[in-house]
Design a binder for these strands. Structure first.
Lengths: 355, 355
DNA sequence: ACAGGCGGAGAAACCGGTTCCCCGTATCAT
DNA sequence: ATGATACGGGGAACCGGTTTCTCCGCCTGT
C-alpha cells in the first residue's frame, strides 16, 4: 500500500522476462549458474525497466538491514562529528548505511538506543553519561554493539576506549615541565564518563605530587562554556588551565583574547580530543588526541566481524587508544618560572601585543 | 531468516494473549475501539514479552520507512553538520530518522542520492556541485526531495536557498564603508554552486563600482585551504579579504596570526555561513549567516507536507533565507584610510606583484 | 535401453507486520 | 420478538523480496 512512485517490482521484471520471480532474484544476486540466455534476458529487462530492488523487502526476508545506528550525545561536537564521519565512511565501503540519533539528555540515551536498534543491525553507542548498571542492561538489549569512549567492565561487549588518564598525565607532565605548579581543571558535564575519568586521574596525580595545586571549577563541554568561565579562571590565579575538551579551550581562548590576556605568556591553556580545529586556534592549542587512528573506523573494525558472524560469533575485541600529546602555542613557561633558569626574564608585564 | 536475537513477533504476542495478530496490531496502533478487556490483555502480554514491532516489516507493509536521507558533500564542514543536526532534531520530533550519506565527489552525488532514496521516504539534497541538467533528472528520480543551498529553476521541487548574493553584497558594503577599495576573494571549490553565485555577485559589484578592485585567487572550502593561501593573500596587497566560507577565513586568520599580521589593523577578513565557531575566532569573525533560522529545520518544514500528502500533494514551496551581517572584530578601517577622514585617495599603488 | 544423477527453473513458503473483508454477536428500534 | 444496524475481531491477503523444495528434462553410465 501507498507505494510511492518508485520503480517496478521484481514481479514485473519476472513477467517481462517471462520467468519466475525466483529466477530474477537468482540472476540479480549472481546465484548458481542460471542459463546464460535467461540471465541475459532478465538483466536486459531489469535494465530496461530500471529495476531497483526494494531494500526494505529484502531486509525483511534476509533479516539484515545493512544499516547501523550511531547514538551520540551531541551532534554539535566536532569530536563526535569526526566519529560520525569516519564511521560513515568505513561502513559505506562495506555497503552499510549509518543512521544518526542524538541523545540530547542522559535519560534518553537508553530509549534512543533501543529505538535505533529496532531498525538497524547494530548500534554504535557513544554513551558517556548513562551509569554503568543501566548501560550493561542496555548493551545486552541492543547487541551487537560497540561502545565508544568509555571503558567497560563487561568483557563481552566490544568497546573502543581512549586512555583519558594517559592523556591527562601527558598534559600535566607537559605543564609541570614548563614550571606550572598551580593547575586548574575546567570540568566537563557532571555525568560525563570522560569527565569523571579525567578528574580521577587529576586527583590521583595531585595526591602523588604534593607540590602541585590542582583545582577544579565547573565548566561544560561547549565553546560557550569555555567562554563563560574565563573570568573565573583568571580570578583563580592558576597558571595552567586544563580545559575539559578542545571546544572549551577554544571558547576560553577567545574570551581571554578579548580580555587581553596573553596566552601563553600569562596563562597556559590545554584542550582535549585533538580535533582538527585545535591546530587552527589562535594560538594553536596544546592538546592530546589521536590524529591517525580514527575512533569511528576502529569502531567499525570491531563491529564488522559481529555483523558477519552467522552464529553467536567469535571473540569480542576491545581497543584502547592512547592519545598523543600535540604541543601547540597555547602553553609556555609558567610566569613565575620565567625569571629563573630556562626561560628568560620579562614576566607578566603589561604585554602590549596581547594578540 | 537470520533473525537476530531480537524479541518476540506479533504472532507470539497474539498467541500469548489468545487473539489474532490483527487484533494485536490494532491494539498497539490504537485503532478503532477494541474491547478494553482484550486491549488490556494484549498490552499486558506485549509488555511482559517486551514486544517491539519490527520496523522493517511495518515499513514493507505500509510503504513508509519513516526515514529520510541527507546527502551532504562533506561531513567535516560545520555548515553541513549544523544542517544535519537541525534536520535530525526536526525529523525526530515527527518520528522520522535520518540516514546520512556523504558524497565525497561530485560524480558520486547522483548515485549516492539514488541509493539513499531506495531505503528512505525522501531525500534532502545538499548538492552544490552537480550541474543543473543532471540535477533536474536526479530530482525527479528521488522525489520527494528538498534541495538545500541552491536555487533551482524548476519550480516543482522544494528548495531552501540562501541568498548568497545578498550576503556578499552586505560584506562588500561593510568593507567599503570601512574604506577598503582593494578586495580579494579567496574562492571556493570550482564546481560549487555557492562559490559560483558568490563570484557572480562579486563580478557584478565590481562592474558597477569601478572604484573597487575585486580580485580572486583559488582557495577551497577548508581551514587548511585558508591556511595555505595566507602568503598569497598578503602578497596581493589587498586590504579586505572575503573568504569563501568561515572555515577558510578561520584557517587564514590562524596563519596570519602566525605571520604576525595584525587583523584587522593590517588586513580585514570576512567569512561566510555564520557558523557558531565564527563567534569564537580570534579575532571574532565578521561574517554573514542565519543564526536563528536553521536550514535543516526549514528543509524539514518543506519536506513534511510532501511526506504526509497521500496523493500527489499540494504546492511545493521554496524558501530563500537572507543572511544577516554579523560584525566581528576581524574587520576594521582600511590601513590607507586610517590616517584621514573617511576614505581618501590611495588607489592601487605600486602593488607588489599580485602574486 | 533403462535407471540414476544432476542441473535448472518454477511453485510456494516465509520474513513480520498492516489492513481489507466478512462474519458473528450485541444493541437498538419497531 | 424480530429485523436492521453497528461494531468487534478473526481470517486471509498483501507488501516485495529470498530461499527451500520439488519437479522436470536431459545426460550419462552400464
Amino acid at each position: 500500500m501507498a507505494r510511492s512512485n518508485v520503480g517496478p517490482t521484481i514481479t514485473e521484471v519476472a513477467k517481462a522476462a517471462g520467468v519466475s520471480r525466483a529466477t530474477v532474484s537468482r540472476v540479480l544476486n549472481g546465484r548458481t549458474t542460471v542459463d546464460p540466455a535467461i540471465g541475459a534476458r532478465v538483466r536486459a529487462q531489469a535494465e530496461r525497466l530500471q529495476y531497483r530492488p526494494n531494500l526494505t523487502a529484502r531486509y525483511l526476508s534476509t533479516g539484515r538491514t545493512m544499516t547501523v545506528s550511531l547514538v551520540i550525545p551531541d551532534l554539535g561536537n566536532p569530536m563526535f562529528q569526526s566519529v560520525l564521519r569516519s564511521l560513515t565512511r568505513a561502513a559505506e565501503s562495506a555497503g552499510y548505511g549509518v543512521l544518526v540519533a542524538e541523545a540530547q539528555s542522559a535519560e534518553k540515551e537508553a530509549r534512543i538506543a533501543q529505538d535505533a536498534r529496532r531498525q538497524c543491525d547494530a548500534v554504535v553507542l557513544v554513551a558517556p553519561r548513562t551509569v554503568d548498571a543501566e548501560l550493561d542492561a542496555l548493551i545486552t538489549q541492543v547487541a551487537p554493539v560497540v561502545v565508544l569512549n568509555r571503558r567497560l567492565k563487561d568483557p563481552h561487549v566490544a568497546s573502543v576506549g581512549i586512555d583519558y588518564g594517559a592523556g591527562v598525565t601527558q598534559l600535566v607532565d607537559h605543564l609541570t615541565a614548563l614550571g606550572h605548579r598551580d593547575l586548574l581543571y575546567v570540568a566537563g558535564p557532571e555525568r560525563s564518563a570522560a569527565h569523571q575519568e579525567r578528574l580521577a586521574t587529576l586527583n590521583s596525580i595531585a595526591a602523588s605530587r604534593p607540590e602541585l595545586s590542582v583545582r577544579t571549577i565547573p565548566g561544560g563541554a561547549s565553546m560557550a562554556a569555555g567562554h563563560d568561565v574565563a573570568e573565573e579562571v583568571l580570578a583563580s590565579g592558576a597558571t595552567g588551565v586544563l580545559a575539559f575538551n578542545d571546544l572549551v579551550a577554544f571558547g576560553l581562548l577567545a574570551r581571554l583574547h578579548g580580555l587581553s590576556v596573553d596566552v601563553p605568556g600569562d596563562l597556559s591553556v590545554t584542550g582535549f580530543d585533538g580535533i582538527e580545529l585545535s591546530r587552527f586556534a589562535v594560538p594553536a592549542l596544546t592538546t592530546v588526541g589521536q590524529e591517525v587512528l580514527d575512533t569511528g573506523a576502529v569502531a567499525w573494525s570491531l563491529l564488522e566481524p559481529q555483523l558477519a558472524a552467522t552464529g553467536k560469533a567469535g571473540p569480542v575485541e576491545h581497543a584502547l587508544l592512547t592519545p598523543r600529546l600535540i604541543v601547540g602555542d597555547s602553553t609556555g613557561p609558567a610566569p613565575a618560572a620565567r625569571a629563573s633558569a630556562h626561560a628568560p626574564a620579562a614576566d607578566a608585564a603589561p604585554d602590549p601585543a596581547a594578540r
